[in-house]
Amino acid sequence: MNRLVATIIAASLSAGCASYHAVVKTGVEPGPRKVEDKWADSWAGGLVAPDAVDAEPGCGEDGVALIETKISFLNQLVSTLTLGIYSPMEIIVTCGSAEETGETQPEDGSDGG
Rank of each mutant, 00 (worst) to 15 (best):
W43P: 05
P32Q: 13
V24Q: 13
D37P: 03
V64W: 00
V28I: 15
K34M: 09
C59K: 05
G60K: 08
A40I: 01
D62N: 15
P106H: 13
G60E: 08
A49R: 07
E99T: 03
D54M: 13
D51T: 08
E56G: 11
L74D: 04
Q105T: 15
V48E: 11
E107W: 13
T101R: 10
G31V: 02
R33D: 10
L74E: 04
P106Q: 12
G96I: 03
T82Q: 08
L47W: 05
A55Q: 03
A49I: 03
F73P: 01
V28F: 10
S42R: 03
G60I: 10
L83I: 13
P88C: 09
P50D: 00
A52C: 07
D37G: 03
P32M: 11
E68N: 05
P30M: 13
D37F: 00
L83A: 12
P32A: 15
G63M: 07
Q105G: 13
E103K: 10
V35Q: 01
G27D: 04
G27F: 05
D41E: 07
I67C: 01
T104L: 10
G63C: 09
E100I: 06
M89D: 01
P106K: 11
T82D: 09
E90A: 01
E61Q: 15
V93M: 03
R33A: 09
I91H: 00
I71A: 09
G45W: 13
I85P: 05
I92D: 00
P30C: 05
L77K: 06
I85T: 14
T94H: 05
G84Y: 05
G60Y: 04
K70H: 14
L74W: 07
G60C: 06
T101K: 14
T101C: 15
D41V: 04
T104G: 12
M89F: 01
V93T: 06
G60L: 10
G45T: 09
E90T: 02
T104F: 08
L74I: 13
S97F: 04
E36I: 04
V93L: 03
E56K: 15
K70W: 10
W43G: 03
E107P: 05
E103I: 12
Q76P: 03
Q76L: 06
L83M: 14
A40Y: 00
E68G: 03
V48D: 11
E100N: 12
I85F: 13
V78F: 02
E61S: 13
N75T: 01
T82L: 08
G63L: 07
